[in-house]
């Protein structure tokens, strides 16, 4: 028996907010359908935490509305909203045991050992954790307890504020998977705030990119990654190769040859976006000639900075399972797949 929540569709309409003269959010409109997870991703200072605090009810927006299941909750205080909150460092109460933390938010009738153990089980912790103190847990365990505590009330929506950023790489991955699994199994609407684009792309059903307080783009992770709204978004979401090009009839002419486009672009000069893994390294003689300026070996992949022969342009290439390239080596470069063109 797992806690299942009812509905939980979130809609933000024209939300703006300023601290003094500094406007942190500009007219943000965003919809999170019930039962889905949405990641708000943006660099630090982009206003994503303010947005989360507005949804939680800790911050009153200057303008705009917050709707949960079509009810306007903009003015409703935090404790009367049906939300769950998992903060960056868990926000566990140090004066209560794990069990005490979990039952803290439960309705009076539900504060039983069984219910606590159920919730612990939901986040893959054994019942004996109930008697432990928060400072005896690892970072990942603290986050899972925080999640169990938040889920205990069967909230309509759960808010995750950089919940994995304090964990080291391996633990982050595992905790993220665990949280994702729990959220899917309970069908809880989730809103995740993160500065880590990989996390956003892998965690959520949809991703919203926030930059300088404005929502740049929102959609499915694969759509956002393959068709970013602008170059800034493209560069934020992953390593980008940007080349000068001339667009005509659905393809772009650039220093690496002719690349078919996946977006509509008017005939004329444009910036062409490729990803480093789209540029294949071949023997010299096939494709365009390039000179290796710098190479890095990461084990599972290698990257290299290559100057295109006879041009000023440099591109970064990434190969999986390849031998490291030698600096000063001459190689061939070929583009695979399609690119995206951004007219000036």
């Amino acid at each position: 028996m797992s806690p299942t929540s009812t509905a939980g569709a979130l809609h933000l309409q024209g939300v703006s907010h300023s601290y003094g003269n500094h406007q942190v959010l500009h007219d943000v409109t965003l919809t999170c359908p019930a039962g889905t997870s949405t990641a708000i991703v943006g660099p630090s200072g982009s206003g994503k935490t303010s947005l989360l605090r507005i949804v939680a009810g800790f911050l009153r927006p200057d303008a705009g509305t917050v709707e949960l299941d079509d009810a306007d909750i903009t003015a409703r205080p935090a404790h009367r909203r049906s939300i769950g909150l998992v903060a960056q460092d868990g926000g566990l109460f140090p004066h209560l045991s794990v069990g005490g933390n979990i039952s803290f938010g439960l309705p009076r009738g539900q504060r039983t050992r069984r219910r606590v153990e159920e919730l612990l089980d939901l986040v893959s912790l054994t019942p004996d954790y109930a008697s432990r103190r928060p400072d005896q847990l690892s970072g990942g365990q603290q986050q899972r307890v925080a999640l169990a505590r938040a889920l205990g009330r069967s909230p309509q929506i759960i808010l995750l504020d950089e919940p994995f950023s304090a964990l080291d790489a391996g633990l982050r991955e595992r905790t993220r998977k665990a949280v994702q699994r729990v959220l899917r199994s309970t069908g809880t609407t989730a809103l995740l705030v993160t500065h880590d684009q990989d996390e956003a792309l892998s965690f959520a059903d949809s991703v919203a990119v926030l930059q300088e307080g404005s929502l740049r783009q929102a959609g499915a992770p694969e759509d956002i990654y393959s068709l970013p709204a602008d170059l800034g978004t493209a560069q934020f979401l992953g390593e980008a190769v940007v080349l000068e090009s001339y667009v005509s009839q659905g393809s772009a002419e650039c220093s690496l040859g002719t690349v078919p486009l996946r977006n509509e672009a008017p005939t004329g000069f444009a910036s062409l976006l490729l990803r480093p893994e789209q540029i294949a390294v071949t023997a010299p003689g096939r494709g365009v000639l390039g000179l290796v300026l710098d190479a890095d070996y990461f084990g599972h992949d290698t990257t290299a900075l290559v100057r295109i022969h006879g041009r000023e342009e440099e591109v970064r290439v990434r190969q999986l399972n390849a031998e490291p390239l030698g600096v000063g080596e001459t190689i061939g470069l070929q583009v695979t797949g399609t690119g995206v063109a951004y007219p000036p």
């Binding site: 935090a78 903060a87 460092d89 566990l92 109460f93 505590r149």
Partner: peptide, 24 residues
């Protein structure tokens, strides 16, 4: 963070003050 966690768990400001802040 802890006070907000308590608020998000359905406790009002006064209740939060006495069950979370003062207790700690």
């Amino acid at each position: 963070a802890q006070e907000e966690a308590a608020r998000a768990l359905g406790r009002g400001p006064v209740n939060t003050f006495f069950t979370v802040t003062v207790r700690q």
